[in-house]
Design a protein around this nucleic acid. Sequence first.
DNA 1: TCGTTGGTGAAGCATCTCTGAACTATTCTC
DNA 2: GAGAATAGTTCAGAGATGCTTCACCAACGA
Lengths: 298, 298
Amino acid sequence: MGALPDLTIRQFEYLVAVADADTWALAADRVGVSGSALSQGIAELERRLGVDLFDRDGRRRRLRTDAIPVLAHARQVLALTGDLADWAERMRTGSAGRLRLGMIDAAAIVHFGDQLRRFRAARTDVELRLRVEPSGPLLELLIAGDLDVVVCVAPPEPIPGLRTTPLLIDDVAVYAPGKTRPSSPATWGPWVLFPEGSHTRGAITRELRRLGAPIEVVAESHQPDVLREMVRLGTGWTALPRAQAEHGTGNLVEVQTLLRRELVAAVRDGTVRQPVVDDLIAAFTDAAKSTSRPSALR
Amino acid sequence: MGALPDLTIRQFEYLVAVADADTWALAADRVGVSGSALSQGIAELERRLGVDLFDRDGRRRRLRTDAIPVLAHARQVLALTGDLADWAERMRTGSAGRLRLGMIDAAAIVHFGDQLRRFRAARTDVELRLRVEPSGPLLELLIAGDLDVVVCVAPPEPIPGLRTTPLLIDDVAVYAPGKTRPSSPATWGPWVLFPEGSHTRGAITRELRRLGAPIEVVAESHQPDVLREMVRLGTGWTALPRAQAEHGTGNLVEVQTLLRRELVAAVRDGTVRQPVVDDLIAAFTDAAKSTSRPSALR
DNA sequence: TCGTTGGTGAAGCATCTCTGAACTATTCTC
DNA sequence: GAGAATAGTTCAGAGATGCTTCACCAACGA
């Protein structure tokens, strides 16, 4: 194997800055150097790789599609370096460190709310910051190194650079207002669903269509409790993760399981890890083991 | 998150060189630089991380045990950079590239010999280099970036930075000379086994001991065919992966399955991948799917 | 057409990193 | 234990690298 090119962290920072910002000047500003420095830095990166990374498009430059692997590499290395920097920080200060946790709403509230509260109380030495978002953004934040652990819906394909640990199954089921009797999918609806564009919404409508259910949507909300209440009030039917549907009290009729949904804990697959992360994941798996049985049995 | 330290590939090269070589002078020589440069380079790395990585031990320096994560990080980043360099090479030359494959003997000969030959014939554009070693060394070579794919025994724990794909089950069974009748473990032996120190040997003796079998070893060899022949000649009993035991012809009596052994394909979990690698793994999984059934059914 | 915007090149300066040599501390050898 | 050999560090200087400022070019918009 030939000698490796002497790439630097800064060059990778330049690359992702350019990829993320609309204009190079903005990117330069964001990394705190002059536009010229950025230009030269990128040129140097291209020179060392021996490959052109950008196409000219008028007076601006766009990352070539076949150069996307380099960008992904840059992101991964930057994230790993961030982990290393955190490790160094922990070594210097002796602190247990900071834990940036991302969760989808159901995980943060329904499934692991108790564990979270307990962990916070038990590990006051850890600065725990929670961020609640849908699965997609969470995974991107994790890849970019802005989060340390993420609890989200299992991605269909394994994602390079990430490692997932199964936590529990929380299937999405169809729910009807209180007085409804079971019947064929063709009679289901109208619907109260997550908004168009959400990942879960997409999966739900796809599955309903497959079952031959008519999809007339009369209301939309990102908030599961809003959907639940609307069903209770008889506004329509909905499809929700079972745990969220059953969270409150009230008369929802579960019609049938619609699709399988597995929650996992995801971390960057690096060599420098915070021990706290493993503790937290262990707490989650333990909790899931004891609580998911009933839901798995129904 | 604070600004990241501007680490360089070269600094990581220095670090692993120092970790791998007996003396710093030798390490310096290996990376092609003066001892002084190496010393200063490491010092700079420590300064940028803000952490001491080495303990003084007389006039030499040893990597501190709690600095091992940094070394692992360095190795991972170097391996990823190697992948990136290969990608750049492929982009420049337009070639399909070089594929450095590692396999344990059973995989190379018994399980996937045909697939290998077929792949070589079909993809003459790929420079395929095969290296046969035990699982442990193969995985280390993979981590160090000296191999691109490895077919080996599934490691007990997932290894950071690697991703495995299950291929097939090839259990280890106990075999006796032709005329032996089934009997209790206490009467088994004497044994003809893999040499002391090998990973499989360790697992085998551990399991035999658990079953209460006496472990008197009368011959040892790294070569499964040698062991097989010795059993045929009545020298003793052996424990072998089933596929290897049955590879030739002859009168071996399978006494019982001893331990589970799963073969997997392992790759670095990076963002820059050779498409050829996926093709090869696909060929292996396809082959395993069609051939492992009979062995799984017995 | 002219002004504006996005990006690149050149000169100058600061910093970094290498080499070679001098230097210190430890270990070996007798 | 003296003296030599060894392991690693420090220092000074040469050369490379990277950044900023300023000048420049090309594309876009009015």
